[in-house]
Computed example of a mutant assay.
Amino acid sequence: MDPDPDPSRFRDLMLDSEPGFEEVLRCVFGVQDHEARLYLELLDAPDSTVAELANAVDRDRSNVNRGLSTLMEKDLADRRRRLLDSGGHVYQYRATPPDEARELMHRTLDEWAAYVHDRIDDFPNGD
């Protein structure tokens, strides 16, 4: 994960008294709204193609491709290549299962907390 996390991305999460799963996902992983929607769509429709996802989330294919790249970088999705009977191939995408995503969230927050504790320890003593 990010060795020097941006604490500002957690500010909204800490200030929200009852954040939902999507808000937590966005804050913890630093993803955009449409990327969080893509993740949720992939949970509902595993093995979707870019075209199917673009239609489902009402975004153009280039935006969906960029969002999927971000999700894969964050270990929130993966892709598989499927050969077509007519020749060629298509990529299908699948969300990281929720239990694994939860574990990633816990690990990311633990790393962020350690980062904050280090900053506190660096605070001058005032002697």
Rank of each mutant, 00 (worst) to 15 (best):
L84S: 10
F10E: 07
P98V: 13
A77F: 07
D110C: 02
G87S: 08
N65Q: 13
L40P: 02
L84D: 10
P19K: 04
E111K: 13
W112R: 06
L83T: 08
R59F: 05
E52C: 01
D33G: 00
A77L: 06
F29K: 08
G88H: 06
R102D: 08
T70M: 09
T49P: 07
D33I: 07
A56R: 15
S62R: 14
T108S: 15
S62K: 12
K74M: 14
L104H: 11
Y115I: 02
T96K: 01
G30H: 03
N63K: 11
N63I: 04
D110I: 07
V50S: 05
S86R: 14
K74G: 08
Y93R: 01
T49W: 08
D118E: 14
R37E: 11
S69A: 12
S86K: 08
F29Q: 03
L71Y: 06
D99R: 12
A77G: 09
A36N: 00
L68F: 03
A114M: 10
P19G: 10
P46R: 05
T49H: 07
R9H: 09
G67F: 06
D44H: 10
D16G: 03
V57S: 01
A113T: 10
E18K: 10
I120T: 09
S8C: 05
R61K: 14
Y93G: 01
N63W: 03
G67W: 01
A114Y: 04
F21K: 10
A56W: 02
A95M: 06
L38D: 03
R61A: 12
L76S: 10
K74H: 12
L76V: 11
D60I: 05
L25D: 09
P19V: 11
R79A: 13
R66F: 05
R119S: 04
T108I: 03
R80W: 00
D47I: 01
G20N: 12
L83D: 12
E22L: 14
D75H: 13
R81I: 13
S86L: 05
G88S: 04
R79E: 09
L68S: 01
V57C: 10
M105K: 04
L84P: 00
D110A: 15
E35H: 13
Q32N: 02
T70P: 01
